[in-house]
Amino acid sequence: MEMRCYRRLLSISYKEHITNEEVRRRIENAIGPHVDLLTIVRQRKLKWYGHTTRSSGLAKTIMQGVVNGGRRRGRQKKRWEDNIKEWTGLELRNTIRIAEDRKEWKAVVRRSPMRPDGSQT
């Protein structure tokens, strides 16, 4: 969706064979340095995870709860926990312990890879 919006802003037709990297370069020239949409989503998701882990509400109960039964056949859908483990590089029990300390969790969010290729922004 982000690339579609960029291409529309730059009036690039879908028929033109212009790479995403070229589109990103043109956008950066037009508006200056910016943060990718996916990066913003990941940061907010990690921050919200830390926030709910420190709380004692229904969101924490739902997020850390266990449902009886198995999962369906086929490729499994990603869960919140899968994203948190992937982005932080930590096991779930460690993330819960770290998230209890707000300053420590902020440091984890800051140093976690924010782009799909693992590089920082």
Rank of each mutant, 00 (worst) to 15 (best):
M1E: 14
E2P: 07
E2R: 15
E2D: 15
R4E: 14
Y6D: 08
Y6K: 12
R7S: 08
R7H: 11
L9S: 10
L9C: 13
S11R: 13
I12R: 07
S13L: 04
K15V: 06
E16G: 01
E16R: 12
H17Y: 02
H17N: 13
I18E: 04
T19Q: 11
E21F: 12
E21Q: 15
E22H: 03
E22G: 02
R26H: 10
I27S: 06
E28Q: 14
E28D: 03
A30C: 10
A30I: 01
A30D: 06
I31S: 04
H34K: 03
V35N: 08
V35W: 11
L38K: 13
T39F: 08
V41D: 13
R42C: 06
R44D: 12
K45E: 11
L46F: 04
Y49V: 05
G50I: 04
R54C: 03
R54W: 00
R54A: 01
S55V: 01
S55A: 15
S56A: 10
G57P: 05
L58V: 11
L58P: 00
K60M: 06
T61V: 05
I62N: 01
Q64I: 00
Q64D: 09
Q64A: 01
G65Q: 06
V67K: 13
G74T: 09
R75L: 02
D82Y: 08
D82R: 09
I84T: 02
T88R: 02
E91D: 08
R93P: 00
R93C: 03
R93M: 01
N94G: 00
N94K: 10
T95N: 08
R97E: 08
I98R: 10
I98A: 08
A99F: 02
E100D: 08
E100K: 15
E100R: 13
D101G: 06
K103S: 14
K103T: 13
K106Q: 12
A107Y: 06
V109R: 05
V109W: 06
S112N: 08
P113A: 02
P113L: 02
R115H: 09
R115P: 03
P116M: 12
D117Q: 10
G118E: 05
G118D: 06
